[in-house]
Structures are given as C-alpha cells and as structure tokens.
Amino acid sequence: METIYIITFHSANNSLLAYKLLKNCRLKVVMIQTPCRLSAGCARSIEVKEKDIDTAVSTIKENSLSIQGIYKKFINPNTRRYDYVEVYY
C-alpha cells in the first residue's frame, strides 16, 4: 500500500482553495470527508500521496492558507483499521 497523507484545515473555504491550487499544480489529490478521529471542525480534508506531500505543503504555505494538521494514514496491524499519526512540516 502506498503511503497516504491527510491534510486537515480550519475551514471549508481553505480546504476548497487548497484543493484547487493543488489541482492547478497537476498533483493527484483527493478531497475526502475528514475522519472523525482527526477533527470535529471542518468536514473536508485532502489526501495526498507521499511523493507529492512536500510540494503540496509548500504550495499551501506559499498561498498563506492555514493547515490544521497533517497526518500519515496507515493500517494498524492489530485492529486492521486505518490509523493516523500526526506529522510536522
């Protein structure tokens, strides 16, 4: 399984704008519903592949958008469910 990162935002506007910016950069990103364990705030997040995470984060920061958190998504071998660990950029 390829490593996936989830970027969460403080507002729906920021998530939509970030999605548009990243698509314009020709990155393969997916708009998803934010997993409940990550945020009770904004209901939208962006999934980014590991190879694109550096470009995605720098593009978002260059455009002065506020990121709530960045999480690495993986399957927990004990529960066989998705789990998340926060990463810092």
Results as ranks from 00 to 15, higher is better:
1 M>L: 13
2 E>F: 13
2 E>S: 13
4 I>G: 00
5 Y>R: 07
5 Y>P: 04
5 Y>F: 15
7 I>G: 02
8 T>V: 07
9 F>E: 03
9 F>W: 08
10 H>A: 03
10 H>Q: 04
11 S>W: 08
11 S>N: 01
11 S>F: 06
11 S>G: 07
12 A>K: 12
12 A>H: 07
12 A>N: 13
12 A>P: 03
15 S>Q: 07
15 S>L: 10
16 L>S: 08
16 L>Y: 11
17 L>M: 15
18 A>H: 05
19 Y>H: 14
19 Y>Q: 11
19 Y>A: 12
21 L>F: 14
21 L>K: 05
21 L>T: 01
22 L>V: 06
23 K>P: 01
24 N>M: 14
25 C>D: 12
25 C>T: 00
26 R>S: 14
28 K>I: 09
29 V>K: 08
29 V>M: 10
31 M>S: 06
31 M>L: 15
31 M>V: 10
31 M>N: 07
32 I>Q: 00
32 I>T: 10
33 Q>G: 07
33 Q>K: 14
33 Q>T: 10
33 Q>W: 01
34 T>D: 07
34 T>M: 09
35 P>G: 06
36 C>Q: 13
36 C>V: 12
37 R>H: 06
39 S>I: 09
39 S>P: 10
40 A>Y: 10
40 A>I: 08
40 A>C: 09
41 G>H: 01
41 G>C: 05
41 G>N: 01
42 C>S: 09
42 C>W: 03
42 C>A: 01
44 R>W: 10
44 R>C: 03
44 R>I: 12
44 R>M: 15
45 S>A: 15
45 S>C: 14
45 S>F: 08
46 I>S: 04
46 I>W: 03
47 E>R: 15
47 E>A: 15
48 V>F: 10
48 V>N: 05
48 V>D: 02
49 K>T: 06
50 E>M: 13
52 D>H: 14
52 D>P: 12
52 D>R: 12
53 I>W: 06
53 I>L: 14
55 T>G: 00
56 A>D: 04
57 V>Y: 12
59 T>H: 05
59 T>A: 11
59 T>M: 15
59 T>K: 13
59 T>G: 02
60 I>D: 02
61 K>W: 04
62 E>K: 15
62 E>G: 06
62 E>F: 13
63 N>W: 09
63 N>S: 09
64 S>C: 12
64 S>Y: 13
64 S>E: 11
64 S>G: 00
65 L>R: 05
65 L>K: 03
65 L>V: 09
66 S>F: 11
66 S>V: 10
66 S>K: 14
66 S>G: 00
67 I>N: 04
67 I>C: 08
67 I>T: 00
67 I>S: 02
67 I>P: 07
68 Q>H: 12
68 Q>T: 00
68 Q>V: 00
69 G>L: 12
70 I>K: 05
71 Y>I: 04
72 K>C: 05
73 K>C: 09
73 K>W: 02
76 N>Y: 00
77 P>K: 09
77 P>L: 10
78 N>P: 02
78 N>A: 13
79 T>R: 06
80 R>E: 04
81 R>S: 08
82 Y>A: 04
82 Y>C: 05
83 D>Q: 13
83 D>E: 12
83 D>P: 01
84 Y>G: 02
84 Y>R: 03
84 Y>K: 05
85 V>W: 00
86 E>C: 11
86 E>W: 08
86 E>N: 07
87 V>K: 11
87 V>Q: 10
89 Y>C: 12
89 Y>G: 09
